[in-house]
Write a protein that binds this DNA or RNA. Structure first.
Lengths: 341, 341
DNA sequence: CCTTTTCATTTACGCGCGTAAAAAATATGT
DNA sequence: ACATATTTTTTACGCGCGTAAATGAAAAGG
């Protein structure tokens, strides 16, 4: 199979003019079916693909979509990045994936990179509390950005996420109905703003039921949430355990660490008569199904969220001239009853 | 801060000529310190960054490095991708991350994309058995590629991975020394070639100790390894369990599913006197530390592997003219004794 | 102070493609 | 078969930058 180095040559071997071929690559349906067939035929016989750099240089906007997640080795973000990538491809875009790696500096570098890529749009899950707010602001002003997972009020053209207070109150309701009211366990300095809403959701749900909220804030920095949950739980258990026999963790990863600590201490986790403690989480982390016992949690609908994220991006790309108002979409969680609570 | 749209204008405001500025951006040290200072000063006052597409169009090779992993929501690959990304940046490259998503078609698409990106090199963890071999071959011929995790003999300029048979024999030795000899549990049709070497390592280690290897192959396709491990274990346990009280899983993810099934069946896992069964894995998956009980496994040295991967890439980039022979580097695993076996 | 070396500037071309306008060819309807 | 609408070709320009060669200016050395 012969190598062809530019569109000029390819046009020649396919017996057409370069502008026609160019038109084909921008949209195969924009040329006559017979012409299209000739090009596709030539594509079989010759090895050619247009130079993406030359293409993108002349387009004001490229067909690229940036996807930015705060931490790639967190399976939650790995999974949502995977689904977003698939959706982008299906929509005819070329996704470009970045991880901030938990570092605000890296997040800013990614912004600079993305700006220079002139993407059609960016799907951004910001670091949250640690993000350089002004950097995010100026980025969102320049590039059509849809925020997900972690909201920063007023930034970006849309936010799609979970209704965190609904998550928590749903779980609190279930836990209270089926046993003792839960103690809420969270990090003292959580890296992301969802945690705050979950705490608030917990407090108001408890108060609405005439119960006194009880919150335990455990120490620790960074993204090793399981370690933090484990250490926090060991600490709590060493001090006589939580007040009551039920714990609601701010997220599944903390809960996974908590469960591990319970096992270490020989506590039987679950809702059966002989059990010592109930532990619940939130997020339906990919691994929650396999903890021992399997973790009762609130499920985020990954597919629905990422579908909506892309929908929002497409919407903002279309109406780019007459910008509509910023929209916020919150998905409700579903209770996933497993054996831990 | 004024916006500047091209290098011409930027050269003007910094009082230099465009070629000089161009030289600076290619290597800040290639211009006189005083000139460098003037440019960096102008960079503070004006908002300008060169158009990456125009830059890359004229370079034969870009400063990009492609990273391809088979499945991004697998925390193992998430973690190794994260570390590789960091190393690339440190080496002055701009990493571009792709996931094959478990699909050979997607893998080929990624190859096409990468070819058109003219990267300096590519770090590739192929899908393995399902990969289109000829596609990988032609890709490796065209782009300097370093394979990792999963080897395909003869392809790429180097392979860096784990010494899988060492992993297994190390674990077999430990298990035999500390209790009954293990039954080996693996998928009937594992997606990746490491599994085969682990099976072989198991067999030869057992035979070397005068023991009869016993292999259980469980059914299942795809990348939901925990589910497959769980179902396989449930099946085995329903049929009276493995021959003996010790199970060595081909990898940690299967083991995690296996542990979950044991819990479901009320079996006590561990090496203490009262335990029913011992379960071990391989890989030291990020979550193995938090299973109940924590999983005894063989640790891969992520940092060492990814450092070596990048080193190999840099080597092949330098000597691009006089290609040395393909090198293979295998890292030994370390036994991580936790409580499951 | 003058020569040599180093660095910067000028000039000019090319990369591979988008894209616009006008002319030519082809398809469509009657 | 003709007029009209659609598609394709021709021609021509521009994008932002790399890069090479020749010239000019500044730094270094004696």
């Amino acid at each position: 199979m012969e190598k062809i180095k530019n569109m000029e040559q390819f046009a020649e071997v396919s017996g057409l003019s370069r502008p026609t071929v160019s038109k084909f690559f921008n949209d195969p349906d924009s040329v006559r079916p017979s012409t299209r067939a000739r090009i596709e035929d030539a594509l079989e016989r010759f090895d050619y693909q247009p130079n993406i750099y030359a293409i993108n240089q002349n387009r004001r906007l490229t067909k690229t979509v940036g996807i930015v997640v705060p931490y790639l080795s967190d399976p939650f973000f790995g999974e949502i990045a995977r689904v977003l990538e698939l959706n982008c491809i299906a929509a005819g875009f070329s996704p470009s994936l970045f991880s901030s790696n938990g570092s605000p500096e890296r997040e800013k570098e990614v912004f600079a990179l993305l700006k220079s890529m002139k993407p059609s749009g960016v799907l951004l899950a910001p670091l949250g509390r640690f993000s350089d707010q002004s950097a995010i602001k100026s980025f969102c002003d320049e590039v059509p950005t849809v925020l997900f997972d972690s909201n920063i009020e007023g930034f970006g053209r849309a936010f799609i996420g979970s209704d965190n207070s609904q998550f928590t109150s749903l779980m609190v309701e279930y836990l209270v109905r089926s046993g003792e009211p839960p103690v809420f366990v969270e990090m003292k300095t959580p890296p992301n703003p969802n945690a705050r809403r979950r705490r608030q959701g917990y407090s108001s749900a408890m108060e609405a039921m005439g119960l006194a909220p009880e919150i335990v804030q455990i120490a620790g920095e960074g993204w090793a949430l399981e370690d933090i949950g484990f250490a926090g739980a060991m600490d709590m258990l060493a001090r006589g355990g939580p007040a009551g026999n039920t714990v609601l963790c701010s997220n599944d990863r903390l809960a996974i660490g908590f469960l591990s600590a319970c096992f270490e201490k020989g506590l039987k986790v679950g809702r059966e008569p002989g059990a010592d403690i109930r532990v619940a989480g939130q997020d339906d982390h990919p691994f929650s199904k396999f903890t021992c016992p399997p973790l009762t949690t609130i499920a985020q609908d990954y597919e629905a969220i990422s579908a909506k994220v892309l929908e929002a991006l497409l919407a903002t790309i279309d109406e780019d001239h007459q910008q509509g108002p910023r929209t916020t979409t919150l998905f409700e969680g579903k209770l996933v009853m497993r054996k831990s609570a």
